Simulated scan of single mutants.
Amino acid sequence: MSGTGSGAGVTIGSCDVLVAGGGPAGCAAALALVRAGADVVIVAPVATADWQVGESCAPAARPLLERLGLLDLVALDGHAPCYGIQAAWGGEAPTEVSQVLGPYGAGWHLDRARFDAAFLEVAGAAGASRHAGRVRCVWRREDHWQLTTDAGGLLRARYLVDATGRPARLARRLGATPIRSDRLTAVAGLLTAPGGAAGSEHTSLVESTPWGWWYTAPLPGGTQVLMAMTDADLVVGTHLLDRDAWWAQAQRTGHIRHRIAHLDAPPRQLRVLAAGSSHTRPAAGPGWTVAGDAASATDPLAARGILMALATGLDSARAILADHSGDTHALAAYAGRIAALHQEYLRAQAAQYRRERRWDAAPFWRRRHQASLPPLISA
């Protein structure tokens, strides 16, 4: 592959691959493509949020981070260790799944803003160009794509990677369809200990309730994320948008309240986030792929968002390189793998929710217990 890319100015020109989205999936794809000799431009908006919800990075991501040359960066960049997950689920007493004794050791509780910024910097240092903004229009012309951005830039690219997250904004414009399985919603707050003192726990904690479930995890720097998870249409009825009511419900839990006992005030603000499961069909087509949450967005309960972002980013890059080398089945095969992986995930998700039977009559749980399992398919 060859082309001319430039990160300066409004008009970028031509490139081999345009990656829409600068998160882990987009950066993983860009890094793999650049190292294979492709000319890559990443189009992504400048981060404006004052904080991002942290994510646990599973130990199974270690080999992928090592392949990308990022393992030492993550290990040495001040991210907090994650030794496992505790869950009060299906019963009052919490159970624990330890990660320390697994084949890859502990994972991490990430400072997502720092992780994403470092990953983007590594991709840029490897040779990927950066254009701040979002893709606005895209159309096919002969053997390449032409795109405009909201900053007015005109770009030409032979291939596209949509790593724009759950909305799959670029794939929608190409005729693909994001398919949602549920409308799980997170109402999240960032908690800070007095004096910035960090808690002693290095595990995530999940606790189910009649209307959904709570999640909390420590983050670097003495902060802690706390999220109430329920369906979008149930948020108002559970009063979770009211900061004081949200905090009061957290105080009435059996286990979450002990984990946040050293935090003596509710957060300054709450953030409402889409957290439902979805996938884009198809996940690839002539000259394009989707990766990360745009390809397969999973329930936070699965704790596999970063892992899937890295894996699909790398796999989408391989598919593009194979297609460019003459493998006419590579992109369709990639789309098949994404479809199979997502259906496998949906079956595992259904099994996990069916473990909690204490509130079968409540709408949140009834929906999940009555949902039909997806059929078994293979890539």
Rank of each mutant, 00 (worst) to 15 (best):
R62S: 03
V43R: 03
L33E: 05
A25I: 12
A126G: 08
S129W: 12
G105A: 11
A106W: 11
A123Q: 01
A93V: 15
T48Y: 00
V43E: 00
I42G: 02
D50E: 15
G107Q: 09
A25T: 09
A118V: 07
A38P: 02
L71T: 04
G90M: 12
V40C: 11
A132L: 09
R35I: 14
D77C: 02
G26F: 02
G124Y: 01
R35K: 12
A80H: 14
P24S: 09
L64N: 03
W51C: 07
E92I: 15
A88Y: 02
G107N: 05
A29Y: 04
A28R: 02
W51A: 06
Y83V: 08
P63A: 01
G107K: 02
A8N: 14
H79Y: 06
F119G: 00
A106G: 05
W89F: 10
L110C: 09
T11Y: 06
P45Q: 09
A29S: 11
V122E: 13
A61Y: 00
P81F: 05
E66H: 04
L31W: 01
L65N: 06
A125I: 10
A30D: 08
F115I: 05
R112Y: 01
Y104H: 15
V122T: 14
P24V: 09
L64I: 07
G90E: 10
D16V: 05
A29G: 13
A49G: 03
A88Q: 07
P24Y: 07
V10Q: 07
C82A: 10
W108Q: 10
P63W: 04
A47M: 08
D116E: 11
V40P: 00
A25E: 04
H109R: 08
P81E: 10
P63E: 00
A38Y: 09
D111V: 07
D72G: 10
A87I: 10
A29M: 12
A25K: 01
V97T: 15
V122K: 11
G23N: 04
G105W: 06
E66S: 08
H131A: 11
V122L: 11
G78Q: 03
